[in-house]
Design a protein around this nucleic acid. Structure first.
Lengths: 234, 234
DNA sequence: GGGATTGGTGTGTAAATGACAATAAGTTCT
DNA sequence: AGAACTTATTGTCATTTACACACCAATCCC
């Protein structure tokens, strides 16, 4: 590639991906943040991200960042928005493509990644000042999650494969943060009427009260219903 | 900026913006395409777009592309998605940020832009093979428009300031392309019940039938309602 | 003045939504 | 075994919303 010709001046920029990794532990919605191991913003908390390799697709880069940090593959990933303010990166012109990732929080252990000193789950409302424009990025991704969780069955990505209806509702409550919590009865009716959940034979265990039924999300059925015009909506 | 150090290898890429400019002329939804004046893909139809200047924000670049082509400023602009497949651009690694623009089609005349031989409105379903991955980009933007037009009052951006309810409905019908057209009475009831339109004193003119009332969209009221929790929804 | 054309309007019915509280089924403790 | 506790589970009614549907009105053109 010619980087000296008339368009050469343009080929002096880079792009990165930043990954807003959401998890849910039964209480709060959480984000996985890293503490930066190098300048700029060394020691500051930030979204996990990295420069995109010259021969790497954007999605692939986002998957790589995730895998380096958590060891996970094949999880829900969605591009959200690109941030490109001229001075957003102190070392040069770097625009960044923000992704959302949804993972089952119990499923993984953080692997120290090259770009991170340490990584830690933060409750979504205990995120302080982040490096770069990462607070803004997080806001955008949270807004997107709030919308998307109501119009696509992605909430399940945050729960273990088998879950109770109460857990599912808690998830929605903590993502949406509506002024009033969702009504338990109406929520159950709505979810069950979609016919997307299958009852498991076994029950919740290890709780000091009446155990709840466990359910699983039926991805196949959802696919069929979508083909028939079904629209997920909560 | 140091482009020779260990991160230097990354600073050899560029980014562009591509602008999906939608318009509506009473019949079809239209997109403004250009015929490329230079390689690669010389003479092919493409989305108007350009490389982003090193000291230019992404939005600014999208606005510039629009202004160079149409002379318009201050119109509706929305970032949609970023396309970054490794080989999407034959001259090097160039990722592109796609934007939607909505303009009032009667409002402008195409100005030959540096990057275009000619520009022409194309009906949305008479778009042939485009340069680069522009067909894919167009698809994404069209999907976004279809969603957004139902959840935000952006349809008005495509109509002249004063319009009839029938025109508004035709707009929705041609954007959404639902299997059945929207019901006239229900559409009117719904739109009017939102209280976002003000009746103009004058009437439609020059039509060979009963003239319709003209309406205007009241942007201020919409702002107030949103603050009170109102959600636009069609 | 008659015909053609599109504008404009109301009502009844079915479906979805939202508010609401009592009972049942387990667990733990004594 | 029973009492106390915790959460699971379920149904009704009132309200709102969605939808289907048909006729008269205003203007133009001849």
């Amino acid at each position: 590639m010619d980087t000296t010709g008339e368009v050469g001046a343009f080929f002096k920029s880079a792009f990165s991906v930043d990954n807003v990794i959401f998890g849910f532990d039964g209480g709060d919605l959480k984000v996985l943040l890293i503490q930066r191991g190098q300048a700029p913003f060394k020691d500051k908390w930030a979204l996990p991200g990295d420069l995109v390799y010259p021969n790497e697709d954007l999605n692939t880069a986002a998957e790589r960042v995730l895998e380096q940090l958590t060891g996970l593959r094949g999880v829900y990933l969605e591009q959200v928005k690109t941030f490109g303010a001229v001075n957003r990166h102190p070392l040069g012109r770097v625009i960044t493509v923000a992704y959302i990732t949804l993972i089952k929080i119990s499923n993984f252990t953080v692997t120290a990644a090259s770009f991170a000193q340490s990584a830690k789950w933060h409750s979504i409302d205990q995120v302080g000042d982040l490096a770069f424009d990462h607070n803004e990025i997080l806001e955008s991704c949270l807004r997107r999650l709030k919308r998307k969780v109501r119009t696509a069955p992605i909430g399940f990505e945050l729960l273990p494969p088998k879950f109770t209806l109460t857990e599912l509702q808690q998830l929605y409550d903590s993502v949406l943060r509506l002024p009033k919590r969702l009504d338990k009865r109406n929520f159950r009716k709505k979810i069950l009427s979609m016919n997307l959940l299958v009852e498991c034979p076994e029950m919740q265990e290890g709780v000091a009260h009446r155990p709840a039924k466990l359910y699983q999300f039926d991805r196949e059925k959802y696919g069929q219903f979508v083909n028939e015009g079904f629209v997920f909506d909560i």
